[in-house]
Design a protein around this nucleic acid. Structure first.
Lengths: 199, 199
DNA sequence: TTGCTCGGTTAATGAGCGTTAACGTGTTGC
DNA sequence: GCAACACGTTAACGCTCATTAACCGAGCAA
């Protein structure tokens, strides 16, 4: 049913999703027309309807896709990471940074266009998001048992805001800083922020 | 020409701007119609055109307004704050937190709908934003002279992302946490993040 | 009174745009 | 060879929506 995620010449659907993500992120869901999306992959307007039920369906698939990948990646890291909560947290942070730097447009969409979805899709996405947040909250509370759950959750959201700031960091890979330097900076900032929960 | 900023019964224009900000933030600029904005202030659709040249003009006035207030507030705090860079930074952080909690909808608009503006307005807003960022960068570099300027700038953007996460924190005033607790949490997280630049 | 300005109203206009129709064309399984 | 299908194309259709037109009542100054 699904293609392998390897790089085996992207299928048309994948091309479309990628370009749609970029365009939606740049100009908003309502701001981009189907003709533009088509043009971005070399076909024109209505040709898209051979691959998707409609514009909404593209957005839905994008948002559900990100949320699933984020959650799956997070779960994997929780299982695989070393012994203590410190290493789990570090792994979650690294994973989120990779995601934020690799899929910049999707980050933008994720919290910007959620309300454009059909009720069922929106519920699904929100549920996946919530589970991902809870992954983090659990780890944070293992590290800081004295912190109230609501406070930990707010802190996690704030750290997401920090890590997801990459779209504002210049055009590409991390602005004037290289990719590696950006990763390193974000890592330190995130650890620094969460460490402040101890005081 | 201008009304005093005191609470002297909001003028129609102000009502409209406030409701427009809320609606734009909730559903995006393209997602809300002029009829809805009108309805929100008790008049209907085209009646708005007695107060604004068009929908775009409302967005422009909102975005320019925020940027100006943010920059002015920042400058004031830089001048007024105590002696060292520490106190200036603390004051900038407090000011930004106040802004983020008081004007949630505007925060959302600020980085979401900038491209909908006419070229001249967009340039103006970006210039104001840039100056505000530079205020922070200057202070951060006084505190951490060994940090490269580009890195400091990226860190500042990241901290903005952290502080601007308030819209994601539940419906109002700071979600399950009270206003004061939210302020305190954000303050600690921001200081913690920036402190990590020292290492 | 008269007449001007303010701040509204409803109806019309016109553009943009998602979607569907109707119609090809190459490739492929039989 | 010949369906059948995958994948495009261009030309409507129809709806939404910002903007404009045309009109109106309430204050209020001369």
């Amino acid at each position: 049913m699904f293609m392998s995620t390897r790089t085996a010449a992207p299928t048309r659907r994948e091309q479309i999703l990628k370009e749609a993500a970029r365009l939606f992120a740049e100009r908003g869901f309502h701001g981009v027309g189907v003709d533009e999306i088509g043009a971005a992959v070399g076909i024109s307007g209505p040709g898209l309807y051979r691959h998707f039920a409609g514009k909404d369906a593209m957005l839905a698939e994008l948002l559900v896709g990100i949320s699933e990948r984020l959650l799956d990646g997070g779960r994997l890291r929780v299982e695989e990471a070393g012994t203590g909560p410190e290493s789990v947290l570090a792994s979650l942070i690294d994973g989120h940074i990779d995601f934020a730097l690799d899929d910049r447009p999707l980050i933008t969409l994720h919290d910007r266009e959620l309300d454009r979805l059909r009720d069922s899709d929106r519920k699904l996405v929100r549920q996946l998001q919530r589970q991902y947040v809870e992954l983090w909250v659990t780890v944070v509370r293992e590290l800081h048992p004295e912190v109230a759950e609501s406070e930990a959750r707010a802190a996690v959201h704030a750290v997401f805001g920090l890590l997801n700031s990459t779209p504002h960091l210049g055009a590409n890979g991390g602005g004037p800083l290289g990719r590696a330097a950006t990763e390193d900076l974000l890592r330190r900032l995130a650890h620094g922020a969460l460490a402040s929960l101890a005081g």
